[in-house]
Design a protein around this nucleic acid. Structure first.
Length: 741
DNA sequence: CATCTGCTGGTTTTT
DNA sequence: CCAGCAGATG
């Protein structure tokens, strides 16, 4: 069978066939980028006879990796294709499992999540004698994470101390150093270490770098617009010999700037590789034309972009529906009604619909409405299965058994279920461990040497140590699943959840624990046949690195609820975007900073382009925040969508009590045209649209090219005709009037 | 050492 | 509005 080039369009084929040298694939939303990447890998193996083991493919989620992997296997007609494919984090973790010793770790290392990181920082801050009021651990964590994502070492930070403005900045190098030391003592890496340590090893041991550079002859990176500095450097170093680096991305979909992603990585690809070939995938196969046009007209307001011409051969399709509700309950009601409509009139099933929002907190009111109307739904993100307390408890036991140096996990379970070993005792043991320079667990093994602890207490500690030791030994004898289930009973966890809760709750919690046994078994079965070691350590690693979407099953017949961020890479026939107000989309604090505002705009663009056939945008004029109601105005991005692509529906009258106070005013705005009702304050804001011709007394005729902010302080950038002047004006003083086109 | 209560303050987005 | 936490009491 020859290679199925017919599945690809002309440019996709070119991109697949261009195998050597640096390649940049600029792929608009829905342009078949995953397909291109998949075929490219299959092509390399099948036609170019590249060994799968010489290929590295980096995706944004594990789900994408798995899908791609099975698709490749299908194309190649083979059961297992041993290429390295996964997220940056999982690929790096895999390298670290192999190279751990060089970094002074063992291969049983634990991966610390944010929660663990914060616990570790609390410990570190208190050892340094720093108060948590002055240095909030959460804040320190996020600062530190940002620093590490930029591949900055404590030593680099030392040089910035002279210019340090805040106490935190001044203390950061010390905190950073002490934190890394603590992690190393715990034989643990945090998320950021996973990316940073391999690079550190590459720099420190050139032959390690060479080993991987030689191994991976072809490297492909998806969602390149969302790579941060460390990931960028990783890709560089590993390909700098052959330069067979193929990156795929879309600057308009860069939405992770806040966690250190640098859009310049993709914007400057040609500076890094002047010889790079570029392929632009501009045909969208996903959305009807109205939706695509609307999304395009939003994102084109961004100044910092390469720019492209995304088009579709699809039909015009339905118009976008924009709905204005009195409050969030009204907005949720509208969504429910439309879901019914889609169901009964268009015969759509629940899993063809998704509700997207900016913040996780928004899901609650929508969930309530769905539940009341017996619409089954799945929330992606929020409280994840692996975040449940009972699961985290059991996982902590398992982590400790795999890695007895794991101080954070040990502290989590040392007194849970309660065994009378309180904070004071733990403090004493911790002290001893610091003096002796050993791990907490090792200190507990030498409990007899600690004079200040009573004999009764010592025996409790000994009992706990024996329990853990027993399971460390059992590891060789029992299967991982058996080990977990025996441990759950013997640690007292099962008994605790049976006796401490009412019947219903204990059923669910124990059910969850059993589900965990199941997931362990499943992991072992799945990986017994491939090249990844199936053991408890790799299982725990996988669990730590799961993303929200990874655990989401798109086949279940339920409506999907998730954040705009989580929706990246997905598509649905019907998409709702809720909360289209200033303060949420864009988020309040982003309104002052152009870069951040543009990222919000891209986020909306990502959301809109998820829709294939129908797109609903909705907002409430009044939100509840911290329990108090507050008036909000419609998102400034709504102004950027041409009116002829939308149908405006107003639900103010239906919203009921809340609006009555405004009486006449509310009723009046309810019948107003779409234009004026966009403004809650009854101003003439609506005429301020990009592209709108205007007249100014001094400068004459011009066109609006850009809008920032809202209300009277809105900044309006106008390009004037006469002298080509571009002026930024503040609305309240600008005194502009509208002209006909 | 365990548990209860009253207070504060926090909302992005995630590997 | 509520979760998480410090501080008092059993």
């Amino acid at each position: 069978m020859s290679f199925p080039f017919n599945d690809l369009n002309e440019i996709q084929q070119q991109a697949v066939k261009a195998v050597n040298g640096p390649i940049l694939i600029l792929a608009g939303a829905g342009s078949g980028k995953t397909r291109t990447l998949t075929y490219r890998i299959a092509y390399l193996i099948k036609e170019k006879k590249v060994l799968p083991s010489q290929i590295l493919a980096v995706t944004f989620t594990n789900k994408a990796a798995n899908e791609m992997k099975s698709r490749i296997a299908q194309l190649l007609n083979s059961a297992v294709v041993p290429l390295w494919i996964g997220t940056f984090h999982s690929v790096c973790a895999r390298i670290l499992r192999i190279e751990a010793e060089h970094a002074g770790y063992t291969r049983n290392f634990t991966i610390y999540d944010v929660d663990d990181q914060v616990r570790a920082l609390k410990k570190v801050l208190s050892s340094l004698g720093m108060s948590q009021q002055q240095f909030p651990p959460r804040l320190v964590q996020s600062r530190l994470s940002r620093i590490k994502n930029q591949f900055i070492y404590p030593e680099d930070l030392d040089q910035t101390i002279d210019e340090a403005v805040t106490d935190l900045e001044r203390m950061m190098p010390n905190i950073y150093r002490a934190y890394q030391k603590y992690l190393k003592e715990s034989n643990a890496f945090d998320f950021d270490d996973l990316l940073m340590k391999p690079l550190e090893l590459f720099d420190q041991f050139p032959d390690i770098k060479q080993k991987y550079a030689d191994k991976f002859k072809y490297v492909m990176i998806d969602e390149y617009q969302d790579t941060n500095r460390v990931q960028y450097l990783f890709a560089q170093k590993i390909t700098n010999g052959h330069k067979n680096i193929c990156v795929v991305g879309d600057e308009d979909q860069s939405i992770y700037g806040w966690r250190g992603a640098d859009i310049n990585n993709i914007l400057n690809f040609h500076k890094d590789y002047p010889e790079a070939q570029t392929f632009k995938l501009e045909e969208n196969y996903r959305s009807d034309r109205n939706i695509l046009d609307a999304a395009n007209s939003v994102v084109k307001n961004n100044l910092f972009r390469i720019g492209k011409n995304l088009w579709t051969a699809k039909e015009t399709g339905d118009k976008i529906i924009l709905y204005s509700a009195g409050d969030e309950v009204g907005e949720a009601k509208f969504i429910v009604e439309q879901i019914h409509e889609e169901m009964y009139n268009k015969k759509r099933s629940f899993n063809e619909m998704a509700i997207l929002y900016r913040t996780n907190a928004q899901s609650r009111i929508i969930e309530d409405a769905l539940r009341r109307n017996a619409i089954s739904y799945t929330v992606v993100g929020g409280t994840k299965f692996y975040d449940r307390k009972e699961i985290k408890d059991l996982l902590a036991y398992l982590k400790l058994i795999v890695n007895p140096a794991d101080n954070i996990s040990l502290k989590r379970i040392i007194n849970f279920p309660l065994r009378g070993i309180g904070e004071t005792t733990v403090g004493k043991i911790e002290k001893f461990s610091e003096i002796e320079n050993i791990t907490l667990f090792a200190a507990m093994q030498r409990i007899e040497e600690i004079a200040s602890i009573s004999p009764a207490m010592k025996s409790r500690v000994v009992e706990f140590v024996q329990l853990i030791q027993k399971f460390i030994e059992l590891r060789g004898e029992l299967s991982a699943e058996e080990l977990a289930s025996t441990l759950a009973s013997e640690s007292g966890l099962i008994h605790h959840y049976k006796s401490e809760y009412d019947h219903y709750e204990s059923e669910t919690r124990i059910g969850n624990i059993k589900e965990l046994f199941n997931s362990i078994k499943q992991f072992m079965d799945e990986h017994s046949k491939d090249e990844v070691d199936a053991n408890l350590a790799t299982y725990l690693e996988e669990v730590s690195l799961l993303t929200d979407v990874d655990t989401w099953n798109s086949d279940t017949n339920s409506v999907t609820l998730m954040t705009l961020h989580a929706a990246k890479g997905l598509e649905f026939p019907v998409v709702f975007i809720a909360g289209m107000v200033n303060g949420l989309i864009p988020l309040e604090r982003t309104m002052e900073n152009v870069d951040e505002l543009e990222e919000e705009r891209r986020l909306l663009y990502v959301g809109m382009t998820r829709a294939q056939k129908n797109l609903y945008l909705s907002y409430a004029n009044r939100l509840r925040r911290y329990g108090n109601p507050m008036e909000v105005s419609p998102s400034l991005f709504l102004r950027e969508i041409p009116n002829e692509l939308m149908i405006y529906k107003n639900g103010l009258q239906a919203a009921g009590k809340g609006r009555k106070k405004r009486g006449k005013n509310a009723r009046r705005s309810a019948v107003k045209s779409y234009f004026s009702s966009l403004e809650s304050q009854d101003t003439d804001d609506v005429f301020y649209k990009v592209g709108q011709p205007v007249y100014h007394a001094t400068f004459g005729k011009g066109k609006i090219v850009r809008l920032e902010g809202s209300g009277d302080s809105m900044k309006i950038t106008v390009q004037f005709q006469e002298n080509k002047l571009i002026k930024k004006l503040v609305k309240q003083y600008a005194n502009l009037s509208a002209l006909e086109e």
